[in-house]
Design a protein around this nucleic acid. Structure first.
Length: 298
DNA sequence: AGCCAGATGTCTG
DNA sequence: CAGACATCTGGCT
């Protein structure tokens, strides 16, 4: 039913997106999200947004729902500071424990993406991917173009790019494991796109295998992020406490930022203590879009 | 209310 | 080795 899901299944060769109808639709949706994100304080109406883009309000509404799974108005609401604060949980409750408990057993976990992870040994990390073969490919997803990287042990990297910026994204990711051997292989990466972005395929029976390649500290931080339930958020200092180093919240911020498997390791669910959405390696707009998307499907 | 330093782990030049 | 970071706190004006 969802058009996105179908699109996400088919590998799209690099560069092809620009000339397809989906490409221009995506551009429209991207601009709507950007507008809402930048001007959410003014609570722009659907009419105002449509006028700005020279589109009819009804058409724009339909298009947006098809892509984002919720209306522009709902998205606008999901993007406000109040909303992020609400995600942080009831006031007064020790946030981390409550959300983590829910995450382990409660219904909140029902719709979450199940992941089994393994970390690379320190030796492998030092080798910077030497001797490792990494297959990669670009695919369409709700947040633009997804760059997927897999090893024979599972998903190792997930990055995003706007059409035309594939090169930069690829170089950014390749720089993380300089010595690895890279092979473009859309057939290898395509199945992962479906698993990750189609909610219907999320199940506990068949968990997704991911490989965390990083320092000990970074891996600890990423494992902590994996415990945050779908549709919830925690602060950077919550994460610092969880890994047993409450003073290291700044370092946590840096480690969260270095997360190579964005979205799957839900770094977008980490927010500043006051509920503000602070930076995101692949664009703040995208971070808001992800939280909005989770809200829409929750 | 705003400004500033100090703490943390890791990366870059 | 000196900054720079997707932070936060407490102390100062």
């Amino acid at each position: 039913m969802n058009m996105l899901s179908k699109v996400a299944l088919d590998p799209v060769p690099e560069g092809a997106i620009d000339v397809t109808p989906q490409g221009s639709d995506y551009e429209t949706v991207r601009r709507v999200i950007e507008m809402i994100t930048l001007e959410y304080r003014d609570q722009p109406s659907l009419e105002a947004i449509a006028a700005e883009l020279g589109q009819s309000p009804t058409q724009l509404q339909k298009l947006f729902i098809r892509w984002a799974g919720l209306s522009p108005k709902a998205f606008l609401q999901a993007v406000t500071l109040d909303h992020a604060k609400r995600l942080l949980g009831q006031e007064g409750l020790p946030l981390l424990e409550t959300s983590y408990e829910i995450g382990l057993s409660g219904p909140g976990r029902l719709h979450d993406l199940f992941v089994t992870h393994e970390a690379m040994s320190p030796g492998e990390w030092k080798a910077r991917g030497s001797g490792l073969t990494i297959r990669y490919g670009f695919h369409v997803c709700p947040f633009g173009l997804a760059l997927v990287m897999v090893t024979d042990r599972g998903l190792a990297g997930l990055a995003f790019a706007d059409p035309g910026e594939e090169r930069a994204a690829l170089e950014d990711m390749m720089g993380r494991w300089r010595n690895a051997h890279y092979v473009e292989d859309l057939e290898a990466t395509a199945p992962y796109v479906g698993r990750v972005f189609e909610r219907e395929k999320w199940s506990a029976d068949r968990p997704l295998n991911i490989v965390l390649i990083g320092t000990d500290f970074q891996v600890k931080v990423w494992q902590s992020l994996l415990k945050i339930p779908f549709g919830k958020a925690v602060t950077y200092s919550d994460v610092a406490c969880d890994i047993g180093n409450p003073a290291a919240n700044r370092a946590v911020g840096a480690a969260v930022g270095a997360n190579p498997i964005s979205f799957v390791v839900p770094c977008h669910r980490a927010v500043a203590k006051n509920g503000a959405l602070t930076g995101y390696h692949w664009g703040l707009t995208r971070k808001r879009a992800m939280l909005g998307w989770e809200q829409g499907g929750a």
